[in-house]
């Protein structure tokens, strides 16, 4: 049976799970749904998840992608874990400012900086 190819690249930095996206544009609903499912599965596997989402390769994202990030954040919080975002381009950071989501998320400049801030 053919499996759907993952849209995430996941690796560990110590006890922090770092997630990167294969897609430069996180816009289309079908890929966002898959990203959401994969992220929520990763969160559900761990008791106190420490998740870092690296936006280094991302050029665009839509409100549906923001919704996925919010769902992930809610789930991580419910599991008493931590979620941080990093490497967000200035254009995408502006989306977080406009929507005021910068208040909801911990956003760092780089993977190294973010990893050092997990408790």
């Amino acid at each position: 049976m053919a499996e759907t190819e993952s849209r995430l690249v996941v690796h560990q930095e110590g006890d922090v799970t770092v997630i990167e996206f294969l897609d430069r544009n996180i816009l289309e609903e079908s890929s966002i749904q898959q990203i959401s499912d994969e992220m929520l599965e990763l969160i559900s596997k761990t008791d106190h998840p420490k998740l870092l989402i690296n936006f280094e390769n991302v050029d665009h994202l839509s409100s549906a992608a923001l919704g996925t990030l919010i769902r992930a954040n809610t789930k991580v919080t419910q599991k008493k874990g931590q979620l941080r975002l990093c490497n967000i381009s200035s254009q995408i950071y502006e989306v977080f400012v406009i929507t005021k989501l910068y208040k909801l998320f911990e956003i760092d400049k780089s993977v190294e900086e973010a990893v050092g801030k997990f408790k």
């Binding site: 409100s63 923001l66 919704g67 919010i70 954040n73 809610t74 929507t99 989501l101 208040k103 909801l104």
Partner: peptide, 17 residues
Amino acid sequence: PTLDENIEKPYGRGVWL
């Protein structure tokens, strides 16, 4: 969607954007 009571809702930002 930017009001505190809506900020954690995972929808409703499209028209605003």
